[in-house]
Every structure is written in C-alpha cells, then in structure tokens.
Design a protein around this nucleic acid. Structure first.
Lengths: 158, 158
DNA sequence: CTTGACTCTGTACCATAGTACGGAGTGAAT
DNA sequence: ATTCACTCCGTACTATGGTACAGAGTCAAG
C-alpha cells in the first residue's frame, strides 16, 4: 500500500496514483506524455511529476475513446478541440463538425449491429432458423449506402 | 482495366476483385485468411482462390467493425455468433448478450461525446466561453458508473 | 508462343500502442 | 541511518494489424 494519499488537500497526484485511478500503468503515462497527449506536469525539485487531479479524467477519456475506435492521434484532436475552441472558431468548427459526423456514423452502425444482435437473440430464443445474417448485411452494406441514407435523412447535402 | 469481370454469371471473385470491392488490398485478404477470420476459399486447379461473392460483405464488415473499436479477434467472435447460432444456444446466447451490452455501452458513450461536441459547436457559435469540458467529464466518468463490473478490481488497494 | 496482368507462397518490414527492464535517485517510516 | 517502495530516464521488447517484396507460376489475348 502506498504511504501517500495524505497531504490533506490532495492537490496533486503522483504517477502511481494517477495510473491506478485511471486504470493504466505508469509507463503508459510517460508514453502519453512523450506523445504529447498528456501535457507535461510540473515537477518537484527532485524531478517527480505532480499531476493535477483532472489528469485522471483525461486518461480515462483517452482509454475509452480508443475503445470506441479512435486512434491516439484522433483522441488528441478531440481533446484539443476544447482548448482552442473559441480562438479561430472557423477552423475549429470544421474539425468539430467532421468529428461529430464521424461519431454519428459510428452510432448508426452500432445501432445496426445492436439490432442484428437483438434479432439473433430473439431468433435463437424462438428456436427457429435464422434466415441469413442480418448483422453483416446491415453493416457491410452501409459504408457506401448509409452515407446516401444519411444525406437523405438529414435532408442536406455534404 | 481488368480483363476479367466477364464470365457471365459472376459466380466467384478473384482476390483482386474482392480486394477492390471491399476497399482493402490483396495482401490483407491473405492476412485475414491466415488469421482465420476469412475462411479459406475453394481453389482452382492452378491454386487461384475463388471467392464467393459474399466475401466482399464480410470484409467490409470486418473493416467497419474495427473502426468501431473491435479487435480482429472480437470481429471474428461477432462473425461466428451467427454460424453457431442455434447449436448450443445457451453458450452462444451468453456471448451474444455480452456483445450486445458492450455495443450498447459504446453507443451510450458515443452519444455522450456527440452531446458534448454539439454543445461545443453551439457554444462557439454563441461566442460565449465554454465553462469546462463536458466531453471529458461525461465520458471519463462513465467508465466506473456504467461499467460497475470492475470485477477484476478487487478492492482493498486504497 | 509470347506478353503482361494477375496469382501464388513465404518472408521481411512497418506503424501504432503500449510494456518491461536496468540502473540510479528520492523520501517517509522505522 | 537504513530500508523499501516509489520515481526517474533511456532503451529494448512485445502484440496487433497490416504492407511490401521476391521469385515463380497462370491465363487470356494478340
């Protein structure tokens, strides 16, 4: 057990604490720092890092965004969106809009998978044969078609 | 222009055709085959692969599922779900249900990201300062709440 | 029957995202 | 003062998901 966590106000965290709370290991934090996805935290005189507590949230976000299919580079973009938000709003806006569309596309496709899987579950509940595979058709077809569908749904062109 | 695509009935496809239609390259098909994620197709006498046309759909599905954050191993599981569907329904059902939950979780998190991003866009539209970052809070917080199943994390560490 | 695009196999290489390790310094408790 | 977990840094290694040849065979057209 760490002998730390004292210090009263919990103002800053050390690497092992951030790592544990965020569910990654210490090396990963350094890795992210090297990659520029985590800002370099202030150091003590000794060189020890002193992370601000919100680092934990940031790292958790990074992990989760990766599980949602974003690369570290993309996660970095997402994180930066907010920092630069009001400055040069025009350029940022474009990026944000693109990301938003990407996210909506992911949601649509996951909904399709969900539907197929639900049907699968129902079907195998009722013991009747599954006609053909809905999950594949829905999703694999969608890369081309769904963009059209989306355009129709939204009513606006791209 | 390939000299192929004749043959009248389009019964089978060759590697380059599958690759082109699925938007991957030829080596990738072999790679998937080695990994067992694409079944070995029948061969001609010469050794040439003759893919059934639905291979294209399968490959597109694979690509998209990866973009949604599933590893090849997971994609394989998803694909196999349907093959084994009615046989040993009990075991399969469990897997399917787990996948379904995972997918729903992804959707929820993407919805959260979408919301935050939408707010960001609204905020920077209205030119007012963005209070704090909603996108990070929403997503990084949820890992615990929603995924209460930090089962492998036996307490006591803190 | 030659040509050129396409295919085969195997092996080597690449980028991304970490993980592990060695050797040395730090720091709070005993 | 010693101990021992924790920290530092750099480097090397791993796994995943491909990509890129090299060298040889195939096949349809000219």
């Amino acid at each position: 057990m760490a002998v730390v966590e004292e210090g009263g106000d919990m103002a800053t965290l050390r690497t092992a604490e951030v790592a544990e709370q965020a569910g990654v290991n210490v090396e990963t934090l350094r890795f992210y720092e090297r990659k520029g996805i985590l800002p370099e935290p202030p150091r003590r005189a000794s060189g020890y890092r002193e992370y601000p507590p919100e680092t934990v949230e940031r790292v958790r976000f990074i992990k989760r965004a990766q599980e949602l299919g974003f690369s570290l580079r993309e996660v970095q973009d997402l994180l930066e969106l907010r920092q630069t938000a009001r400055a040069k709003a025009g350029r940022v806006r474009k990026v944000a809009e693109a990301k938003l569309e990407e996210i909506e596309h992911k949601i649509r496709d996951l909904e399709a998978m969900k539907l197929s899987l639900t049907e699968l579950l129902c079907a195998c509940d009722g013991q009747k044969p599954i006609a053909s595979c809905p999950i594949i058709e829905t999703l694999s077809g969608c890369e081309r078609c769904q963009q059209k569908e989306a355009a129709e749904q939204q009513g606006g062109g791209r």
